[in-house]
Amino acid sequence: MSELTDRARRRARGVARRARDRYQAPHAIEARLRALEEEAQEARQLQRRVAELTDVVTELLIPIHLRDDARVEEVLERYRSRL
């Protein structure tokens, strides 16, 4: 009798858990999708930031390395004036 009751209880718990999962799963998946979309967007935004950084470095670094102050001034001014 008690074995039957235990089995019935286990079965009832299983049904309840599956019902709860069925109810919660879509919400959890929606939340995860939203989070993933936000994270994907954050990663995409790095493309422009890396482009800006690379542009600044490649346009301005060489004259600075040459330690040519007049050229640095000229390059900086030209870079800024064409933004």
Binding site: E52, L53, V56, L76, R80, L83
Partner: peptide, 9 residues
């Protein structure tokens, strides 16, 4: 919002 402006200016 643009690093190019910030760095150059």
């Amino acid at each position: 919002d643009e690093l190019r402006f910030v760095a150059a200016i």
